[in-house]
Design a protein around this nucleic acid. Structure first.
Lengths: 247, 247
DNA sequence: CAGAGAAATTAGACTAGTCTAACAACAGGA
DNA sequence: TCCTGTTGTTAGACTAGTCTAATTTCTCTG
């Protein structure tokens, strides 16, 4: 079993309890069993045994029917978890532009496993945005790029969103333009809603290699080879996947 | 209990089994119990019951002592998990610039909980890098910015890394420059190695609000207020935390 | 200062996931 | 055809985490 990043012996559930206690003490002043239960959306009966274990590990001070207090070690561990939580939430909201509730849920789930190296680099990314005059602008350019975000007005940065440095014949090709046996590398999935979701779920992500296996007489469907599996694409789906032809 | 994003009833462990089977079939051609066990680093005795459950859920075809095969539903579910895995791994390697092994571990852990919305936006980020002439360049600027990555030669982009649009008196202040009672917003943690790790673990991340509580006569340590807790910083630590003064 | 209500704890049950170790099935060689 | 080694299955044990429902403890009000 892989050892915990934050503190030896901690499980994700215990980290959650610790973080909840940390926030309750910081925001409300005290952490009571009932509040912890409410916060974590579990029954009070589930909290008590967790408190006993955290107490045994020396992370909290717990006495029957009394408020829960953090030890120095517990405070440090909780801060580490909460730091991960906040950095992830900020990444999801301010770089990926997700709504607050989704960002919160995703951060909650990922906070238990993020390596210190990833934390460090994410922090650098935000530092870059704070400290370099270009940083925030770069992210805004991504978020306002009409080539990848449908519904926005055309790119205000005089960028026609076609990689100009690529040879002309590799530009704006889609899977529908490939012949059987030809191989391509996905650049963009240029569609929205259910179709986009479906294509992404299938694994058609940028930088994925695919090969056209065969094409139905009418041109629909197109069978492609992906990660050793064969997949059928409707014409409109094949046309939506922009590829760069390989070899 | 929150319902699974990929397929109803799936647990993270079952998703891992499914993904392993998917990759084995795609890469080796067959999925056998022993290989699945080796891949997932569990004992064969743990695999059999998992196979029974996946079979009952209609995701795999499993008969005693026979190779495991994916059903259509299982293939689709596995592809979704694996797509999350790949997009996360690519994010960790090509944007956060983490080493391959760490990126792989982080991706493995996060793949089970990433929302479809986050997947979608991460894909857009890579599309932006593929499709917009500026995309890749922006990421490279971040990765080569000497202001946030120590050890690099000075920023090649004629950027002095000081936010020029901020009023002069808020620039390049550190916690050490604040007086008791003054509030600041963290912009950068400008140090390396153990000191940086310690400060990040403490929760001193960009965009965090802190207040100086009191300062020892000699100026070391400085006590700050953070998320309702008081924290002591050594002089060198306080000097490393660049802040923007508030109110 | 007694009793009611709120809060916390306990006990017992259940699920998921893992392990170990004994056992069963099968395939290939002698 | 039998024997042997590899592979897979089973049973039983254990941990972590949750629930429900009964019980205990505390607090505050009348």
């Amino acid at each position: 079993m892989a050892e915990n990043i934050i503190h030896p012996g901690l499980t994700p559930a215990l980290e959650d309890y610790l973080e909840t206690i940390y926030r309750l003490i910081g925001e409300v002043g005290v952490a009571r069993v009932g509040d912890i239960a409410k916060e974590r959306e579990v029954k009070p009966g589930s909290v008590t045994p967790a408190m006993k274990r955290l107490d045994q590990m020396g992370l909290i001070r717990y006495h029957q029917r009394d408020n829960v207090g953090l030890t120095a070690a517990g405070e440090a561990a909780a801060r580490k978890v909460y730091a991960r939580h906040r950095i992830l939430r900020r990444f999801f909201t301010s770089i990926l532009n997700l709504p607050a509730d989704i960002a919160e849920r995703d951060a909650c789930a990922a906070e238990h496993s993020l390596s210190p190296q990833a934390v460090d680099q994410m922090v650098r990314l935000f530092e870059y945005m704070e400290v370099c005059p270009e940083g925030r602008e770069h992210v805004d350019r991504f978020l306002s790029c009409s080539a990848v975000h449908p519904g926005l007005t055309p790119c205000p940065h005089e960028c026609d969103a076609i990689p100009l440095d690529l040879p002309a014949r590799t530009r704006r090709m889609s899977i529908a333009d490939l012949k059987p046996g030809q191989q391509g590398r996905v650049q963009q999935v240029d569609c929205q809603g259910a179709v986009r979701r479906r294509l992404l779920d299938m694994g058609l992500l940028p930088d994925t290699s695919i090969t056209v296996a065969r094409i139905a007489p009418a041109g629909d469907p197109v069978w492609i080879q992906l990660q050793g599996y064969e997949l059928a694409l409707r014409m409109n789906e094949a046309q939506a996947v922009a590829v760069e032809v390989q070899e």
